[in-house]
Design a protein around this nucleic acid. Sequence first.
DNA 1: AACACTTTCAACCGCCACCAG
DNA 2: CCTGGTGGCGGTTGAAAGTGT
Length: 236
Amino acid sequence: MHYISTTILVFTHTRKKGMRKPCCEKEGTNKGAWSKQEDQKLVDYIQTHGAGRWCSLPKAAGLHRCGKSCRLRWINYLRPNIKRGNFAQDEEDLIIKLHALLGNRWSLIAGRLPGRTDNEVKNYWNSHIRRKLIKMGIDPNNHKLHQTFPVPKPSPSTTSTAQSSANNNDRVSDTQSCLVEETATVSSTSRLNLDLTIAFSPPTNALLEEHKSRPTSQCTNIIHEDSAPSGLLLFL
DNA sequence: AACACTTTCAACCGCCACCAG
DNA sequence: CCTGGTGGCGGTTGAAAGTGT
């Protein structure tokens, strides 16, 4: 009820502002969770016709969905080679380092984690890592240690109660050791040590393709404005 | 067992960049 | 150059699952 009224409000607002029509017809399209049948239809269609042309895809595939919804479902869930489930410790460490370097650019971060999607990385950051950093007195936005907050000792008693499986305890303490190490760097240089060459996974084929197709001017060596070069080559 | 509260994560939304005409 | 269509991105939402009382 409330949703419909806000949708109408927003819709009329955008029509007024930019006279821009929505990418899909709102009427008659399904919303919410996808059914098995819908998934199957989408997979079948993409397997025979390939992904792309998202706006016309739903009609062609016989789906009562918005094209964007189809794209999201494919990219985040149905696409082959998607890694699901718990993040490994090295993945978590890499996310933290990449976030310190790139900020909330989830697609770029996810691009360095084979099999992970931007949505998954974003969710994991917001529900796990962010909370963890805050608990440890680290500002998740700038990765700096809060001045007033004492650095906790990496003892088992400091682990989270909500996720207290043995596995998680291990992960938490590992992260702590990693972050304590990092905060030491922060305190000495006011910046994280962002040398990513150690834990860096090789670029995916897609990334390499992407790189090939771009002019060299867009291939950027990321150098912090006030720090030494990280040695990380990013394809932006 | 029942309820309240918290956490997780799939999905939606609007904005913006890019490109073809 | 301008405009409209399209794809991609990051922020946000809300239902479901989990946990505490």
